[in-house]
């Protein structure tokens, strides 16, 4: 391909990103430390902030794993002074444990609402607020319409949204930029007794303008570590969901 043509294509891709509601990427190699394994699967090799990400979890163990992964992700991609709002239907999160994932529990504002409708309203309001870095919401159902409202909200404010869908009845199409599934897997102990660092099976089921993938990731010393031996297998199965 001619260099000029390649340049035009790259420009067009950038424009497409802009048109699909994503912020133009600053520098291509801006990925925060530890997230390097995602590089080839992200649009422009940049983690999409100012977008809504969807996490699917099936059971209580899955919710715990996802909450841990999201806390770690938020701490990796945001400024340490930034404020996060965490919306949930009940009180389950144990604040002192969040610190283990690098996120300051006293910089999180917890909002507990019982009804899904109330949660969605509050999430949308929070996503519109420029004073926040991230908004995490634990929900069961997310319709296409409501996901679109959330997406429109973040396009104005540049807040990153994380929707944790706990035990959803049906995985319908949403406008979320990505869909993930996180599950805990046996930790590494290297032959030592005891339980090792948190380790997850991170499945990226879909990523708009990116590629799906699956990794085994460990959280230690306040950053993500990829387990190289089963690196980035692209499961054919998940392609269809994207």
């Amino acid at each position: 391909m001619l260099p000029a043509k390649a340049y035009i294509i790259a420009q067009l891709q950038k424009d497409l990103l802009k048109l699909s509601g994503m912020k133009p990427a600053g520098h291509a190699s801006d990925l925060p430390k530890g997230l390097g394994f995602l590089k080839d699967h992200l649009p422009q090799a940049n983690f999409p902030t100012a977008a809504v990400h969807e996490f699917v979890c099936a059971n209580k163990e899955g919710v715990a794993a996802t909450e841990g992964f999201v806390s770690a992700l938020v701490s990796t991609i945001t400024h340490p002074d930034a404020i996060t709002v965490w919306l949930s239907p009940g009180k389950t999160l144990f604040p002192p444990a969040i610190k283990l994932f690098g996120l300051d529990p006293d910089r999180i504002i917890f909002i507990q609402l019982h009804q899904e409708k109330e949660l969605l309203w509050a999430t949308e309001e929070a996503l519109k607020c420029r004073g926040l870095a991230a908004v995490v919401c634990e929900l069961q159902e997310l319709s296409f319409t409501s996901s679109r409202r959330l997406q429109l909200a973040v396009e104005q404010s540049a807040v990153t949204g994380f929707i944790l869908r706990v035990n959803p009845r049906k995985l319908t199409a949403t406008t979320c930029v990505s869909r993930w599934r996180i599950s805990s897997i046996a930790s590494e102990t290297n032959g030592m007794p005891g339980v090792g660092f948190p380790k997850w099976d991170v499945e990226l089921l879909k990523m708009r303008n990116g590629k799906p993938g699956s990794w085994e990731v460990e959280w230690k010393e306040n950053r993500f570590h990829l387990h190289e031996h089963i690196a980035a297998v692209e499961p054919q199965l998940h392609r269809k969901t994207g």
Binding site: K60, A64, K91, T92, F94, P96, F101
Partner: peptide
């Protein structure tokens, strides 16, 4: 915040 000991992310009330 104390981080010396492992603590679960979800605590049952």
């Amino acid at each position: 915040w104390k981080v010396e000991r492992p603590r679960p992310i979800q605590l049952l009330s």
